[in-house]
Design a protein around this nucleic acid. Sequence first.
DNA 1: TCTGTAATTGAAAGAATTTTTCAATTAGCG
DNA 2: CGCTAATTGAAAAATTCTTTCAATTACAGA
Lengths: 129, 129
Amino acid sequence: MLEAAIGKMRGGGYKATPQRTAVLRALAEEQHQSLEEIRARCPGVGLVTVYRTLDLLGELGIVRRLDLGDGARYEMAEDHHHHAICESCGDISEFEKCPLDPTLLPLEASDFEVRSHSLEVYGRCAACR
Amino acid sequence: MLEAAIGKMRGGGYKATPQRTAVLRALAEEQHQSLEEIRARCPGVGLVTVYRTLDLLGELGIVRRLDLGDGARYEMAEDHHHHAICESCGDISEFEKCPLDPTLLPLEASDFEVRSHSLEVYGRCAACR
DNA sequence: TCTGTAATTGAAAGAATTTTTCAATTAGCG
DNA sequence: CGCTAATTGAAAAATTCTTTCAATTACAGA
């Protein structure tokens, strides 16, 4: 999985530096991390490099940036999924099954070409009820 | 509409100051404004007061904060709607018809109590195609 | 394997955004 | 109309992200 990402970098003409792979490894350890959480997992890498690597991985489609109300978070893009955010404890969980009904999308009719979408569900998780 | 919001403020024990109503009026003029756009519409109101008013209106459910990738934006909560964001020109349009199929939501089964959701659709608008 | 070079790194400075502090002002109750 | 707790805003601080630039390094080609 990391190999695939590293290949994508090299394929794009970018160097696979130790710093970049360290950030990648950090991202692979847990989803939805804040910048400081990522930084804590790759202590040797400078702040600026982390930012730049996240940008690069974002452009390559390897990483996605989230903004769920409490600042920026980052996750490996991997498979299509959505987020369920508990308003009580802040826990973020993922679900794969996409509840979007494409036939209900009125946008194509209005000449808007849909490329992607993101869906966030807010509520209370099992533990908090 | 502004009256309703002002009533909600007073009902919550908050004062309806000229600054707060000025921010409300600014918000009513256009959806998805950045902080500076809002500020430009109520020049007499101090920066801190704008931030605090947006917080307050958010707590009261009158205003919603968005984060669509280019920093914070604010909109009157009003009716349930979603956003279509053009990746080319950045234009944000709204659509009311919710394409969520509730029967596909697998969350209730996992004891997650859904309270609300937000859906953003990314792509290219008619003008940019 | 070695070398040259363009890409990359990171410290420091800067910019942008949001929050805190606190003294002065004011909305609205009685 | 006066009192008081809530509100305001200027200044300073905190936080978050970006730019700059000299030093370092990955890796393509010899």
